[in-house]
Nucleic acid binder design. Sequence first.
DNA 1: ATTTTTAAGTGACAAATGTCCTTTCACCCC
DNA 2: GGGGTGAAAGGACATTTGTCACTTAAAAAT
Lengths: 188, 188
Amino acid sequence: MSHPLRTHIESVSQLTDEEFDYILSHFTPVKLKKHSSLVREGDLVKHEYFVLKGCLRSYITDNAGKEFTYQFAVENWWISEREAFMKHIPASTAIECMEDCELLALSYDDRAKLGREFWKYEHYLAVKSNMGYVALQKRLQLLIMGSAKERFENFVHQYPHLYNRIPKTHIASYLGVSRETISRLYRK
Amino acid sequence: MSHPLRTHIESVSQLTDEEFDYILSHFTPVKLKKHSSLVREGDLVKHEYFVLKGCLRSYITDNAGKEFTYQFAVENWWISEREAFMKHIPASTAIECMEDCELLALSYDDRAKLGREFWKYEHYLAVKSNMGYVALQKRLQLLIMGSAKERFENFVHQYPHLYNRIPKTHIASYLGVSRETISRLYRK
DNA sequence: ATTTTTAAGTGACAAATGTCCTTTCACCCC
DNA sequence: GGGGTGAAAGGACATTTGTCACTTAAAAAT
């Protein structure tokens, strides 16, 4: 069975064994316990992460201390604080493990290096970035157009495996509604 | 006084007169009357547009016939139906002129050609795309975190010139609230 | 200038959603 | 295996926002 990262990259472009081994050699394994922080607000973010095992979320905290989930990540997803990572500025979003996690970390410099050395890797990044943009667009659309109910149903439909894995509180804050509203919705 | 398009590109990277003239030669002027459509739902989108004069909006229509504004564009903004333009698929979003407009159209092929011929133009596109992503992120954040009031105040603060230029109905649909709610808000 | 159309303001009411509080249940930790 | 901890369900009530109907004002058309 092929390495999860390889499978992910090859959904965009094929690699030889040598190429993949070389790429993989730039990643560092990271293990984290449930509830630990991967990134805290204000941190400099020197890596982006590919998730091998576990479940994380990135979130913003407003002045009143309320948390808003910006993104989830499970196996075979990438996660980081994009803006902080790209621009070398302090993170405005925190990232936390919701389960014990195993990650692969790639530094900014190594990412740039791989991009330079492999057209294919650069292309993979570009495709990934574009998919991210389109996903963001869709989510925005749903936020503007849909009621709490529609947003929730869409979420369950789109991520059935997350619905039973992630605390409802966080799903609520991802959808921009209160936890109680979520409760009310699937009573019916 | 320099050409608006040149000014815009040069906010990212400098051009010689010859380079700019060559780039500009790939653009076609387009004039449109108020209320006319630049893109209709279902159209193939072969161009992207730089706005020289006027004011446009892109919007989605839901099953009930309700319109949701996805984006505004005024002088010195770019506008298109990104997904349709990039992937050569039918547009799911329409674009309409809210005033008489003068645009510069650039075809998909010419865009690619300019990107190939000028590293600087390619770079300009990349920076623009990244800024678009960050802007989308900010807007999403505000939609999740902010009340109607906060969203509206943020809009007025961020785009004071649009607030007096664009019908409130469309500002409301951009913010994801009803027109009446907007009315109520700035009574106070 | 007069008519017609379109945008905007307003109030009353309904529906959706948020907030607060209590109770229950499941899981984790000595 | 009991005590503690955190997540979730549920009810009561407050607040926000949407909807509808009507009026006024402004802009466009003739």
